[in-house]
Design a protein around this nucleic acid. Structure first.
Lengths: 139, 139
DNA sequence: CTGCGTGCAAATGGTTTGCACTACG
DNA sequence: CGTAGTGCAAACCATTTGCACGCAG
């Protein structure tokens, strides 16, 4: 289960398992659309009324540092968070603030193949992420 | 010349040609590495000591709205600006704050071709931009 | 027990806003 | 001239910080 996986990960990274960390991680997993810190705080306060805003930011930072969460950047300048840590791209809605994960191994292979042949001068590629902007057709 | 081109563009968009707008545009063109608002202000103050910070932000916003500049977002949360308006990607240095433009028509064609065949469910693509992270070898 | 993690509240800093004044067209 | 644009300073607000206390290991 997600919860146990997370607790195990914390231990492995030498981080203490606290109710705050568990709650924050669960919030990011359960909330859709890559929540902002504010959304996460709202969600958590239902069950943890006393959790501090500063704590949420500190926990989010340390989880990102330890690769248990990822930061997602959008056109605005508010930071959002993603519990999907594996390599993936993002679909950005041009009309709303919706952001969806997009995994596509075939595409990744195609792009890697391309850059295997065509090097960028004086630059060693470590990671390629696509920002795909467009419109969701419904829902 | 760049300057005349810019003045012409302002007129066409119905924006007044002011010394502030010209100076801000020139700053973004001349400064390398996709300057922040702060860098732009420092640069301009050499010749326009009285330009207001608020004005710089307002001008940058309106130039972006009118497609005369682009915003560049990095992992941190400070906005940076780009005078290259044509479609291109960005090379992000993983160790410094350096950001370079990267144009590659062949790559664009390859990716467009790929998505011509493989549609994303319930999503209509408008634009695809790559964030290429890595290391510059020297310089 | 020991120090990592938390709560709290104040500080920070990039960006925005309101308004009177200026100058472009 | 009339209004878009500017200067200024205060306001905003997401995020950070410092410190005393509390709890996980």
């Amino acid at each position: 289960m997600t919860n146990d996986f997370f607790r195990e990960q914390l231990k492995q990274k030498g981080l203490k398992v606290t109710p705050q960390r568990v709650a924050i991680y669960e919030a990011v997993v359960n909330l859709n659309n890559h929540p902002t810190a504010e959304k996460i705080i709202d969600y958590i306060r239902r069950n943890h009324p006393n959790i501090a805003i500063g704590t949420v930011y500190k926990v989010l930072d340390s989880l990102v540092d330890n690769n248990l969460l990822k930061k997602v950047k959008n056109d605005k300048d508010i930071m959002r968070y993603d519990a999907v840590v594996s390599h993936h791209h993002h679909l950005y809605c041009s009309e709303t603030d919706r952001i969806e994960d997009y995994e596509d191994e075939l595409l990744d292979k195609l792009i890697n193949e391309y850059f295997k042949n065509k090097k960028i001068e004086k630059f060693e590629i470590q990671d390629i992420t696509l920002q795909i902007t467009g419109k969701f057709n419904n829902n």
